[in-house]
């Protein structure tokens, strides 16, 4: 492993040197801004991508964390930067949630962006303590039989996990109590300790416990079965046909980035996503790596804004 470190050294040095000017873009360092804490999933994905992109662009790509207000501080910041192609934003599924949840945002969630590409998509999983519910059908039946008693722990009011639970209520007619925790780990502790009956969260939170036999994974929230968990049924095929919640990470830039520069960045992103080690690392984080065109990303975001606006209005969640 030390050899690997040494092998990486000349590369790092090469990056520090000014790149041979074969093309005027980029002639200085670029940055990926994201709106979450240092070391969170968004930060890690940014760093994985930044490392590969800097090789292709011949310039360092710096990761900048500007956390706050569910990522909207970073979005407000990025959309006000020059559209010169040097500022990127790592966007997450929460971007569409924020558009639906906040009364006022310091930016336009779609129009203020040049959309580059998706990076990966991931479903949520619904899990209960092992042996408590035979299937998702059994859970929903139990919830319907005793409305307002079964508790879903989620990772915070207005998180995608929370809204997914509310959507489950809306579509199946069950009435869960939705209990907020500070993050998925705290919700998972509560499930383990018996304080809540179910949690909805990402594979990174749930899978380790499921493999150890502590949790049963009842269902995935994606419309079709997720490739790396083919045995897990979906909500759509069991209790609510058409149920489809998939979260994502993506790269966006401020509006009006020149087409050739956006194309160059998109090319680099796609190139990085094709590398097996990048796919593997993104896979370890629970997502399926995959790029897209700018239009596809835009359509994805617009579609989700519509869904979440509906959920928030129907579930009576207070807008901020």
């Amino acid at each position: 492993m030390f050899k690997k470190l040494l092998a990486a050294l000349p590369l790092t040095l090469a990056l520090a040197l000014p790149a041979a000017a074969q093309d005027s873009f980029p002639d200085h360092s670029l940055r990926i801004v994201h709106g979450f804490g240092a070391g969170g999933n968004a930060d890690t994905v940014s760093r994985i991508l930044a490392e590969e992109m800097s090789k292709g662009l011949g310039q360092p790509v710096v990761v900048e964390s500007r956390p706050g207000a569910g990522g909207t501080v970073a979005s407000g910041y990025v959309t006000k930067q020059d559209p010169d192609g040097y500022t990127m934003q790592l966007m997450v599924g929460g971007h569409a949630v924020a558009a639906a949840l906040y009364n006022q945002l310091p930016y336009e969630s779609v129009d203020d962006y040049t959309f580059i590409s998706t990076l990966g998509q991931f479903p949520f999983f619904i899990a209960a303590r092992a042996g408590e519910y035979e299937s998702i059908n059994a859970l929903i039946e139990a919830a319907k039989a005793a409305p307002g008693t079964l508790k879903i722990g989620h990772s915070g009011v207005g998180s995608t996990q929370h809204l997914t639970g509310e959507l489950l209520d809306l579509r199946t007619g069950a009435k869960f109590i939705h209990v907020p925790y500070k993050g998925g780990a705290a919700a998972s502790t509560a499930l383990m300790g018996g304080e809540v009956d179910v949690i909805i969260d990402t594979g990174t939170v749930i899978r380790g416990q499921a493999e150890a036999g502590v949790y049963d994974i009842l269902a995935a929230t994606s419309e079709n079965r997720w490739p790396d968990s083919p045995d897990v049924p979906t909500v759509s095929e069991t209790v609510s046909p058409g149920f489809d919640v998939v979260s994502w990470t993506a790269i966006g830039m401020p509006a009006d980035v020149p087409d050739d520069i956006a194309e160059r960045i998109r090319g680099e992103v796609h190139k990085a996503l094709e590398l097996p080690e990048v796919q593997e690392k993104i896979g370890d984080l629970g997502a399926k790596a995959g790029g897209s065109s700018g239009e596809e990303l835009k359509a994805l975001i617009e579609g989700q804004i519509a869904v979440w606006t509906d959920v928030i209005d129907s579930a009576g969640i207070d807008k901020r």
Binding site: G39, G40, N41, T44, T204, R207, G208, Q209, E211, A212, V214, E280, K281, D284, L285
Partner: peptide, 14 residues
């Protein structure tokens, strides 16, 4: 824990 996950180890009771 994030560093563990990136190394392909899913931390859990096992």
């Amino acid at each position: 824990i994030g560093a563990l996950i990136l190394n392909g180890i899913i931390p859990g009771p096992r």
